[in-house]
Amino acid sequence: KCPLCELMFPPNYDQSKFEEHVESHW
């Protein structure tokens, strides 16, 4: 789950994509 927007991600979600998403909040 994204700590900034509460959006849920699947357990096998690509880590780099997840980090990209988190950085999109900044």
Rank of each mutant, 00 (worst) to 15 (best):
C2V: 03
V22S: 05
M8G: 14
S24Q: 06
E20F: 04
L4W: 11
Y13Q: 13
L7P: 03
N12T: 07
V22T: 09
K1D: 07
Q15T: 08
P11M: 06
W26M: 08
W26K: 15
V22F: 04
F18H: 08
F18D: 03
H25R: 02
E19R: 11
F9Q: 02
H25M: 00
N12A: 08
P3D: 07
F9N: 10
Y13K: 15
C2H: 02
L7E: 10
V22P: 02
E20T: 10
W26S: 15
C2Y: 04
P10Q: 09
Y13V: 10
E23Q: 12
L4M: 13
E23A: 11
P11A: 12
E20R: 10
K1Y: 06
K17V: 05
F9G: 04
C2Q: 01
E6D: 04
C5W: 01
E6N: 01
H21P: 01
S24G: 09
E19K: 11
K1Q: 05
S16Y: 10
V22R: 11
H25C: 10
D14W: 05
Y13S: 10
Q15C: 12
P11W: 00
C5E: 02
H21M: 00
L4G: 14
E20N: 14
Q15Y: 03
L7A: 11
S16L: 09
C2R: 01
K17C: 02
F18Q: 14
P11E: 10
K17Y: 12
H25K: 00
C2A: 01
N12L: 09
L7T: 14
E6H: 00
K1E: 05
L7N: 01
P10F: 05
S24A: 12
V22G: 05
V22C: 11
H21C: 00
S16E: 05
K17H: 06
K17G: 13
L7G: 08
S24E: 10
K1A: 04
E19L: 07
L4T: 15
C2K: 00
C2G: 00
M8V: 14
L4N: 15
E23V: 03
E6S: 07
L4A: 15
V22A: 12
E23H: 12
E20A: 11
L4Y: 15
P3S: 13
Q15K: 09
F18Y: 08
S24D: 04
W26E: 15
S16Q: 00
K1M: 07
K1T: 10
P10L: 03
D14S: 12
H25G: 01
E23T: 11
K1W: 02
E20C: 04
S24K: 13
E19P: 03
K1I: 05
F18E: 11
P11H: 06
P10H: 08
C2S: 02
D14Q: 09
N12V: 09
E6L: 05
L7Q: 15
K17Q: 11
P11D: 13
K17F: 08
L7K: 06
P11Y: 07
K1V: 12
H25A: 02
Q15E: 07
S16C: 11
E20W: 04
Q15M: 14
H25L: 01
H21T: 00
S16A: 06
N12W: 01
P11G: 05
P10D: 09
S24L: 10
E19A: 09
E6M: 06
P10Y: 02
W26D: 15
M8S: 09
L7V: 14
P10G: 04
S24F: 10
S16M: 07
M8P: 06
K17E: 03
C5G: 01
Y13W: 04
E23N: 12
E23F: 04
L7M: 14
C5Q: 00
L7S: 15
P11K: 03
L4S: 15
E6C: 14
S16D: 07
